[in-house]
Write a protein that binds this DNA or RNA. Structure first.
Length: 157
DNA sequence: GCCAACGTTGGC
DNA sequence: GCCAACGTTGGC
């Protein structure tokens, strides 16, 4: 695998955890991902990779800020916690099912990039972009360097 | 291995 | 709150 920096997009419900919260705490273990595809993407993450922080299930869904991967993937501790809503009875300490990474705060975007606006650039972003693919509910997804550049450029418009 | 039932995601 | 699209579960 290449050692080049990779880019990602991670969704969060702002009522639960927002870019503002991330700024406040500085660094956060990205708990609660319970989808194998999303988990597999997190397993590929390397320290220094950059991440769009996307707010879903809210008034204006879209990209609100940037974070970075800190450290390496490790088992999500909430899978072992019976009191957690993310508890998974099928997980054991010896054989954890779910991993996570810590995400550090980088910055807010200068302005919101709404899903509506992002969709206007569907052609340039490509059909395979999981965020705008119909029915895709992936909460962690890869962003190519070209897509990252394109989206960041929109910020300045 | 098939597939219906069910639960979840997330835009609107 | 609605519901389409999708993933997971479990009976067979």
């Amino acid at each position: 695998m290449s050692t080049r920096k990779h880019y990602w997009l991670m969704k969060t419900e702002p009522t639960d955890f927002s870019i503002d919260t991330l700024e406040k705490v500085g660094r956060e273990p990205w708990t609660g991902v319970r989808n194998y595809q999303a988990r597999n993407f997190m397993r590929q993450m390397k320290a220094g990779d950059e991440v769009f922080v996307y707010h879903s299930n809210c008034e204006v869904p879209g990209i609100y800020g940037i974070g970075e991967v800190v450290g390496t993937p490790y088992p999500d501790p909430t899978q072992f916690n019976k009191k957690s809503k993310y508890f998974d009875p099928k997980s054991t300490q010896e054989q954890p099912r779910w991993d996570l990474v810590d995400i550090g705060y980088v910055r807010h975007l200068k302005r919101l990039l709404s899903l509506t606006e992002i969709r206007e650039h569907r052609d340039a972003l490509g059909e395979e972009f999981a965020l705008t693919r119909t029915g895709s509910r992936l909460s962690v997804l890869p962003v190519t360097a070209a897509q990252w550049k394109l989206l960041l450029a929109l910020e300045k418009k």
